Simulated scan of single mutants.
Amino acid sequence: MGMTPAISPDTREEVRISEQAATPWQTVVWNDPVNLMSYVVHVFRTYFGYSKQESTRLMLAVHHDGHAVVAQGAREQMELHAQAMHDYGLWATVRRAE
């Protein structure tokens, strides 16, 4: 009969933090009444390097659905993307991936 080693509270906390860090985050761009659709396509092409087709698809999702996930990854990187979108005049937020 094998014994299961006890896991210290510190180890459990480290595992929890590690699992949180591994959870993907998303940068979400939201629709607004200010920016032209062509400008949003331009921003996605310029900043993310997306193709014209992908940029247009994302812009249309923003326009018709009210928002679109434009990037997914580590929280820190998604926060940088959201700040960049703000710098371009777009409304963006960061959330945990669904």
Rank of each mutant, 00 (worst) to 15 (best):
E76A: 15
S55R: 02
L60S: 09
M78H: 06
L90W: 09
M37V: 08
F44A: 03
V69Y: 04
E79T: 05
V41N: 07
E14Y: 11
A71N: 05
K52V: 09
V40Q: 07
V28F: 08
G66H: 06
F48T: 03
R96F: 00
H81P: 04
P5N: 11
G89W: 07
S51P: 06
Y50I: 00
A68N: 01
M3K: 10
A82I: 06
E14I: 14
Q26F: 02
T27G: 06
E98Y: 02
A82P: 04
A6N: 09
R16P: 02
G89F: 02
G89A: 07
F48W: 02
V94S: 04
H86E: 12
V62P: 01
A61Q: 15
H64F: 07
D32F: 06
I17T: 14
V15D: 12
L60N: 15
V40E: 07
Q72I: 11
P5L: 14
L80C: 09
H64A: 05
R45N: 05
P24M: 06
A92R: 00
H63M: 01
D10K: 09
E79V: 03
Y88I: 08
S38K: 03
R45K: 14
E13Y: 12
H42V: 01
F48C: 01
H86D: 11
Y50L: 13
R96V: 12
T93N: 09
H64M: 03
S18Y: 11
W91H: 13
T56E: 12
K52L: 14
Q26E: 15
V70T: 03
E54V: 11
Y47T: 08
V40W: 06
I17F: 07
A82E: 06
V62M: 05
F44S: 02
E98L: 08
D87L: 08
V62H: 00
T27R: 02
I7S: 13
R96A: 13
V69R: 05
W30D: 03
P24H: 02
E14H: 10
S51Y: 04
P24I: 08
Q77T: 13
V69L: 07
D65M: 00
G89C: 04
Q53V: 11
V28H: 00
D32T: 00
H67G: 01
M3L: 13
K52T: 08
P9S: 14
H86T: 14
S8Y: 08
A97D: 15
E76Q: 13
E79G: 10
V34S: 06
T27Y: 05
M3C: 08
M59G: 02
A61N: 11
R45I: 00
E76G: 14
F44W: 03
Q77V: 12
N31P: 01
Y39F: 15
A97Q: 15
R96E: 14
P33E: 14
S18A: 15
T46E: 15
P33V: 04
Q77F: 08
M1S: 14
A6H: 09
A61S: 14
I17E: 14
A21N: 10
H81E: 01
D32V: 00
H81L: 07
M59N: 05
D65H: 06
F44L: 15
N31V: 00
N31C: 03
W30E: 11
S51E: 01
S55Q: 08
Q53N: 11
A92C: 06
T56I: 01
R16N: 10
R57V: 00
L90S: 08
M1E: 11
G2C: 04
R75F: 06
Q77W: 10
M1T: 11
V62G: 01
T56N: 10
N35A: 09
